[in-house]
Structures are given as structure tokens and as C-alpha cells.
Lab assay of single mutants.
Amino acid sequence: MADQLTEEQIAEFKEAFSLFDKDGDGTITTKELGTVMRSLGQNPTEAELQDMINEVDADGNGTIDFPEFLTMMARKMKDTDSEEEIREAFRVFDKDGNGYISAAELRHVMTNLGEKLTDEEVDEMIREADIDGDGQVNYEEFVQMMTAK
């Protein structure tokens, strides 16, 4: 299944994987998964984290390695993001709930994920998604960005 991913997608997933893999040992533990999910405003229980890991832990060693992570991402993409997942993601970014993602809100979430971005990089990300040019990202623009192939 992971063989249907483009090189660009694999590179993006590698970057995402390293955000989860806090200690850089090449595997994601339940603790690391929990840290990232909490930084995104989720509050999973230990059991939920274990279930999430077990779902993709092909070799049964209790952690997720990069090939397992790729399989999980490929699977998720095949079920292409349901509207509800996209709306949920939008809410994570839209901290003040005004229906727009500002540069400050984007920077806040990315920083929580451990991504240190310059102001230019954040502005560039907003510009790429900002179709109507108002300097922020509304829900429609967010959907376009998330579903762009």
C-alpha cells in the first residue's frame, strides 16, 4: 500500500514521523504519540494510545517504525480525509473560533508540534493556502489545501 505514495508524500511523512519521534530513535512510543496528540489539544487515554499503536504495529514490538507509519498514512489517505476530520483539524488551528486561521494561530500550532518556523515560513504557508488574498485561511481554503492532490 505504501508503494502507491509519491516521493514527495514519503518525504512529508518522514518529516511528520520525526515530529512524533521525539528522541530520534526511529520508533514512536505511546508516550511520544501522547505528547504530540496533547500538543494538538487531544486528550487520549493510555489505552487509546496503545490501541492506536497496536493498529499499525505490524511486528508487534509495541512501537511504530517508519515503514509501519507509512502504511498507516497510506491507509488513512485511501479513506481520504472525511469532512469531519478536516473540520476537526481546522478547529485545532482556529484557536479563537472566528472561522479563520491567522498567521499567529498557525505559528502557535506548529510551535506546539515542535516545528520552529520563521515568520517568513509561516507567512508563506498562509499565502499558499490563501486563495482570496485576505491574509488568513478560511474553512473553504483549508479544505482545498487539505484535499489538493
Results as ranks from 00 to 15, higher is better:
2 A>V: 12
2 A>G: 12
2 A>E: 14
2 A>R: 00
2 A>T: 12
3 D>P: 08
3 D>R: 15
4 Q>W: 00
4 Q>M: 07
4 Q>Y: 10
5 L>W: 03
5 L>N: 03
6 T>N: 00
6 T>R: 02
6 T>K: 02
7 E>V: 10
8 E>S: 09
8 E>P: 04
8 E>G: 12
9 Q>T: 12
9 Q>V: 04
9 Q>S: 08
10 I>V: 10
10 I>T: 10
10 I>G: 04
11 A>W: 07
11 A>C: 08
12 E>D: 13
12 E>G: 10
13 F>I: 13
13 F>T: 00
13 F>Q: 02
13 F>M: 00
14 K>W: 08
14 K>Q: 08
15 E>P: 02
15 E>V: 08
15 E>Q: 09
15 E>C: 04
15 E>L: 14
16 A>K: 02
16 A>V: 11
16 A>W: 10
17 F>S: 07
18 S>N: 15
18 S>F: 12
19 L>P: 10
19 L>T: 05
20 F>C: 13
20 F>W: 14
21 D>S: 10
22 K>T: 09
22 K>Y: 06
23 D>C: 01
24 G>A: 11
24 G>L: 05
24 G>N: 05
24 G>D: 12
24 G>C: 10
24 G>V: 11
25 D>R: 15
25 D>S: 09
25 D>H: 07
26 G>Y: 05
26 G>S: 10
26 G>C: 10
27 T>A: 12
27 T>K: 05
27 T>G: 11
27 T>E: 06
27 T>R: 11
28 I>T: 09
28 I>R: 13
28 I>K: 07
29 T>G: 00
29 T>V: 15
30 T>S: 12
30 T>Y: 05
30 T>C: 01
31 K>F: 07
31 K>Y: 09
32 E>N: 09
32 E>L: 06
32 E>C: 10
32 E>V: 13
33 L>F: 14
33 L>S: 09
33 L>T: 13
35 T>V: 02
35 T>Y: 02
35 T>R: 09
36 V>T: 15
36 V>Y: 00
36 V>E: 11
36 V>K: 00
36 V>D: 09
37 M>E: 01
38 R>W: 13
38 R>D: 00
39 S>C: 09
39 S>M: 10
40 L>Q: 14
41 G>N: 02
41 G>C: 08
41 G>T: 07
41 G>F: 15
42 Q>A: 01
42 Q>L: 12
42 Q>T: 04
43 N>E: 04
43 N>S: 14
43 N>Y: 12
45 T>A: 14
45 T>F: 14
46 E>V: 11
47 A>W: 09
47 A>R: 11
47 A>Q: 05
47 A>H: 10
48 E>I: 08
48 E>T: 00
49 L>A: 14
49 L>M: 09
50 Q>E: 11
50 Q>M: 01
50 Q>D: 04
50 Q>R: 14
51 D>V: 02
52 M>G: 14
52 M>T: 12
53 I>Y: 13
53 I>F: 11
54 N>M: 09
54 N>A: 00
54 N>P: 08
54 N>W: 08
54 N>V: 04
55 E>A: 08
55 E>T: 00
56 V>L: 11
56 V>K: 15
57 D>W: 14
57 D>I: 03
58 A>S: 07
58 A>Y: 08
59 D>F: 12
59 D>L: 14
60 G>S: 13
60 G>Y: 10
60 G>I: 07
60 G>R: 08
60 G>N: 14
62 G>F: 12
63 T>P: 12
63 T>I: 12
63 T>V: 08
65 D>C: 15
65 D>N: 14
66 F>Q: 06
66 F>D: 01
66 F>Y: 12
66 F>A: 14
67 P>S: 10
67 P>I: 08
67 P>G: 03
67 P>L: 11
68 E>P: 04
68 E>A: 14
68 E>L: 00
70 L>T: 01
70 L>I: 13
70 L>V: 11
70 L>S: 13
72 M>I: 11
72 M>E: 02
72 M>R: 08
73 M>N: 14
74 A>N: 12
75 R>E: 14
75 R>K: 12
75 R>V: 00
75 R>T: 03
76 K>A: 14
76 K>S: 07
77 M>N: 04
77 M>V: 11
78 K>H: 03
78 K>F: 00
79 D>T: 02
79 D>L: 09
80 T>I: 14
80 T>C: 05
81 D>T: 08
82 S>H: 14
83 E>D: 07
83 E>L: 11
83 E>H: 13
84 E>G: 12
85 E>V: 08
85 E>I: 14
86 I>N: 08
86 I>R: 03
86 I>K: 05
87 R>Y: 12
87 R>F: 12
88 E>L: 02
88 E>W: 14
88 E>R: 02
88 E>Q: 11
89 A>E: 01
89 A>L: 04
89 A>M: 08
89 A>D: 00
89 A>W: 06
90 F>A: 05
90 F>G: 08
90 F>Y: 11
90 F>N: 15
90 F>W: 15
91 R>C: 03
93 F>G: 06
93 F>M: 04
93 F>C: 04
94 D>H: 09
95 K>A: 00
96 D>S: 04
97 G>W: 01
97 G>M: 14
97 G>T: 10
98 N>Y: 09
99 G>H: 05
99 G>Y: 09
99 G>K: 15
99 G>Q: 03
99 G>S: 14
99 G>C: 11
99 G>T: 05
100 Y>K: 04
100 Y>F: 08
101 I>F: 14
101 I>C: 14
101 I>V: 12
102 S>D: 07
102 S>N: 13
102 S>Y: 00
102 S>R: 11
103 A>V: 08
103 A>R: 13
103 A>C: 00
103 A>L: 00
103 A>D: 11
104 A>D: 01
104 A>N: 03
105 E>F: 05
106 L>K: 03
106 L>Q: 04
106 L>R: 00
107 R>F: 03
107 R>L: 13
107 R>M: 15
108 H>R: 12
109 V>I: 10
109 V>H: 12
110 M>S: 04
110 M>W: 03
110 M>L: 11
110 M>I: 09
111 T>L: 10
112 N>F: 02
112 N>P: 09
113 L>K: 04
113 L>M: 01
113 L>C: 11
114 G>Q: 02
114 G>N: 14
114 G>P: 05
114 G>R: 06
115 E>I: 01
115 E>W: 05
116 K>I: 13
116 K>E: 11
116 K>D: 00
116 K>N: 11
117 L>W: 00
117 L>F: 06
118 T>Q: 15
118 T>V: 11
118 T>F: 10
119 D>C: 15
121 E>C: 00
121 E>I: 05
121 E>R: 10
121 E>P: 04
122 V>D: 06
122 V>R: 04
122 V>M: 14
122 V>P: 00
123 D>V: 07
123 D>F: 11
123 D>R: 10
123 D>C: 04
123 D>K: 06
123 D>S: 11
124 E>R: 11
124 E>W: 09
125 M>V: 11
125 M>F: 06
125 M>P: 02
125 M>W: 01
126 I>R: 04
126 I>L: 10
126 I>V: 12
126 I>D: 06
126 I>E: 03
127 R>A: 01
128 E>V: 14
128 E>F: 09
128 E>I: 11
128 E>P: 04
129 A>N: 02
129 A>R: 06
129 A>K: 14
130 D>H: 07
131 I>Y: 10
131 I>N: 14
131 I>W: 14
133 G>C: 01
134 D>V: 06
135 G>N: 06
135 G>D: 05
136 Q>A: 09
137 V>G: 04
137 V>T: 08
138 N>C: 15
138 N>V: 12
138 N>Y: 14
139 Y>P: 06
139 Y>K: 04
140 E>N: 10
140 E>M: 13
140 E>T: 06
140 E>V: 09
141 E>I: 05
141 E>W: 05
141 E>K: 06
141 E>R: 07
141 E>N: 01
141 E>F: 01
142 F>C: 02
142 F>L: 06
143 V>F: 03
143 V>G: 07
143 V>D: 04
144 Q>L: 14
145 M>T: 11
145 M>S: 05
146 M>Q: 09
146 M>I: 09
146 M>T: 11
148 A>W: 14
149 K>V: 04
